[in-house]
Design a protein around this nucleic acid. Structure first.
Lengths: 205, 205
DNA sequence: GAGTTGACATGCAATCCGTATGTCAGTTAT
DNA sequence: ATAACTGACATACGGATTGCATGTCAACTC
C-alpha cells in the first residue's frame, strides 16, 4: 500500500532531531545540552538518536552541516547583488561578519564546531562557506583583479578575519556602533589583495 | 621557624595542577579530560583543585592565561628583531601563525578556550596577545604608516586571520609547504592597511 | 499471510562533576 | 611550649549524563 512510508518517517525524524538539536545547542551549548531533553523535545528518545547519528558528535556534525549550508547560500545571495566581482568578495566577507552576530551561528558553527569536530577544513561537511569564497578568489585572480596568491590561503585569511572580527563585535558592549567599524577595517585590509592601486576614495560605509 | 611554608606549598600545588592540566587538556581536550586523572597525575586530588580554582572552567582559565602570556611574550620577542614597526607587525602575525602549529596552543587557546570561556575579548585574562598587536597598530597609525582605521578592529582582523590560517595550516597534509604560502598571503593582505601614496584621499602628516 | 528486517524504545553500567563533610599540618595566641 | 584555630586538602556521596545491549513492534518482502 504505502511502500515508502518507512524512509519518509525516518527522514522526518532525522529532521526533527536536527531541529531540536539546533535549538538545544544554540541555547545550552553542545557540552551542556542533554540528549534526553533534546530527544524528548523532538518527541523521541535517545534510541532514535544513536541509530541515526551514531554519536552525540555525529548529531553536532549534522547540525553544523545544515547551518553551514544555509550560511553559504545567504553569502552567495548577498554577493550576487554586488556590481562587480571585487565588491562581491567584500560583500561575502561583510555577510559573514553579520551572520556571525546570530547567536545560533556563533555558538554552533564558530565555537562548539571547531572545539568538538576539530578544524573546519577537515569536517565531514567540507564547509561550504569557505568553498564559495575560494571560488570567488580564484575568479578574481584569473581576471587579474587580485594579486596571484594562493587562493585557499587567501580565502582562509579573509574568512578567518571576518569570523573572528564578528566574534569580537558580538561580544562588545555596543555591537551597533562596532559593526560598521569592523566592516570598514575589513574592506581596507582586504584591499591588500588588489593587484593594482585603484585611485578611488572609498567612502566609509 | 618556617612561617612561609604554607603559601609556598600552595603555590607549588597550583603550579603542579596547572602543569598537569596543560598536558591533559592538550592531549585529551578540555571536555574529555578527567579531573580525577588530572589531579592524580599531579599527586593531588579534586579537593585541591576545587579549593584553588573553584571550578573546572576556572582551571581552564588559569591554564589559558598562562599559555596566552607565553604567546604574547614570544610574539614580542620576534617582533623586536624586525627592522621597523611595519615589519614588526608582520612578524607578530607570522609568529601567531607559527605558534598555532603547536598542538597545545591550538587546542587549549584556539579551540577549547573560546568554546568554554566565551569570546577571548571578555576573558578574565584579558588576552595579552591581542593587546600587544593593538599597541603596535596604534603606533603605526600615529606615525602615518598605517591608514587611520579603528586600532582594535585592525588588531582583531589581523590576529583572527593569522590564527585561523594557522588552524588550516596545522590541519593540512603537508604543513611544511603550506605554512610559507599562508605567511606570504598574510603579508600581502596586511599591506592593505598601509597608508602608502594616496594623496587624493587623505593626507596624514 | 507469515517471516524478516530494521527503526526505535528501554534498562543497565560506567563515568564524571560538584559539594558536603572530615582531617591534619601549619600558624597564632597565651 | 602548649593549646586553640585556621585553612589547605582528602574522601564520600548524590545527581546527571553518555553509550551500549537488549527488547519490541511496525513496515516491507515473498
Amino acid at each position: 500500500m504505502t511502500p515508502r512510508r518507512r524512509i519518509e518517517t525516518m527522514e522526518k525524524n532525522r529532521a526533527k532531531l536536527i531541529a531540536a538539536a539546533r535549538r538545544a545547542f544554540a541555547e545550552k551549548g553542545f557540552s551542556t545540552a542533554s540528549m534526553d531533553e533534546l530527544t524528548a523535545d523532538a518527541g523521541l528518545t535517545r534510541g532514535a538518536l544513536y541509530h541515526n547519528f551514531g554519536d552525540k558528535k555525529g548529531l553536532l556534525a549534522a547540525v553544523v552541516a545544515q547551518v553551514d549550508e544555509e550560511m553559504a547560500l545567504r553569502a552567495q545571495e548577498l554577493a550576487a547583488t554586488a556590481p562587480n566581482d571585487w565588491e562581491s568578495l567584500l560583500a561575502e566577507g561583510s555577510a559573514y561578519i553579520e551572520m556571525a552576530l546570530d547567536p545560533e551561528i556563533r555558538r554552533i558553527v564558530l565555537l562548539d564546531g571547531p572545539a568538538f569536530l576539530g578544524d573546519p577544513s577537515q569536517w565531514p561537511s567540507q564547509n561550504a562557506c569557505l568553498e564559495t569564497t575560494k571560488q570567488t578568489v580564484g575568479r578574481l585572480i584569473a581576471n587579474g583583479i587580485m594579486k596571484p596568491v594562493d587562493d585557499e590561503a587567501a580565502a582562509r585569511l579573509l574568512n578567518g578575519a571576518a569570523l573572528n572580527a564578528a566574534l569580537w563585535v558580538a561580544a562588545s558592549d555596543d555591537p551597533g556602533t562596532v559593526l560598521p567599524r569592523a566592516i570598514e577595517a575589513f574592506r581596507i585590509m582586504a584591499a591588500g589583495f588588489l593587484a593594482k592601486e585603484q585611485p578611488r576614495c572609498n567612502a566609509p560605509v
